[in-house]
Amino acid sequence: MKKIFALSLALGVSVFAADNLYEITPQIGGSWHISNDKYADNIDLSYGLKFATRVMPSVLLEIGYAHINNTEYHFSKESTNAERYSVDLIKEFNIHSEVSPYILGGFGYEHISNELHSVDSDFFGQYGVGVRYALADFLHLKTELKHMISLDGRSDIVGMVGFSIPFGTYAKEVEAVEVVKVTEEILEEVEIIEVAEEKPTLSHIHTFSVQFPFDSSVIAPQYNAEIKDFAQSMKENPNQTATISGHTDSIGDDGYNQKLSIRRANAVKDAIINEGVHAERLEAKGYGESKPIANNATKEGRQENRRVEAEIYTTPNH
């Protein structure tokens, strides 16, 4: 019951996990003029560039520029180009370690190069939806659909696709980690008060050499020998128990990483049980990304953090 309380408290303050502080996104797509009898009813080529900075774990502030090419007027053969400058707030919703839908809203200014038929440069508001897909740490695919409404009544549907280049590291919130640490300290004190007789003491911590691929809890065959040796040591020391703890890197949101770390811990625990160790001597725990041993800003550091450890406890013989 205490473990459930500690886990619930930690998850209650968890936040969306994001790594990149900045991103640059070149985009291309089309602008379809709707609710507008002054432009020809077609879709015009649109392309541009955006720059964003992360102001909260799941919120970005983005400034953008877009060029709309050769928009034809409905009542003549003439055409115009348009330049759009915008500022948007983006709210992301992480549903997977690689996929993040988002909503956006903001305002901007549209400059018309050839003002005819009462079509003038003016301010506009816009809102929309999009999806970010992380192809790699340094390259994300972004698609979005927006509705742009000018103050003079013109209205466009804009669809864009682009490749975002993220860089920099956002300083992640640490409240969840601190709550877990404080909760563990409190629970240790409560256990000392409640248990008068001798209790198992921590003997040592064994870090398995098992290295998990990204977003995986599958144990590769080359680690079977190490798990077999660990199980043999447990069988030779029947007064020992072990807590198997799983860990992840910082990519993905806290809730998802918590579940992934538990799956990794259970995978190693089940492998030890299959070697003949009784299940009641083993406990699996997941710590998500809260206990890194290396720098999550590097590929090598993230690989080290995707690990499983065993805390070995020894009960005194009577």
Rank of each mutant, 00 (worst) to 15 (best):
L7E: 15
L11G: 08
L11S: 12
V15R: 09
N20L: 01
L21K: 05
Y22W: 09
G29F: 03
H33M: 11
I34N: 06
G48A: 07
G48W: 03
L49G: 01
L49I: 02
K50Q: 07
F51M: 08
A52V: 00
R54K: 10
P57H: 01
V59W: 06
L61A: 13
I63S: 10
A66C: 13
A66E: 15
T71P: 11
Y73R: 05
A82P: 03
R84K: 07
S86R: 08
V87W: 00
K91N: 13
E92S: 11
F93A: 12
I95H: 02
H96W: 09
P101N: 07
F107A: 11
E110N: 12
Y127I: 04
G128S: 02
F138Q: 04
L139N: 05
K146M: 13
M148A: 14
M148V: 15
M148Y: 14
I149V: 13
G153K: 13
G153T: 11
S155M: 11
I165H: 06
K172I: 01
K172M: 03
V174C: 03
L187K: 06
H204S: 08
H204F: 12
I205M: 05
V210T: 13
Q211R: 05
Q211I: 07
P213D: 11
F214H: 05
S217H: 09
D229N: 13
G252I: 01
G255M: 11
Y256V: 08
K259A: 15
L260N: 05
A265N: 10
A271P: 03
A271E: 09
E275L: 04
E280N: 07
E280F: 05
G288C: 07
A297T: 02
A297E: 02
T298K: 00
E304R: 08
T315F: 12
T315L: 13
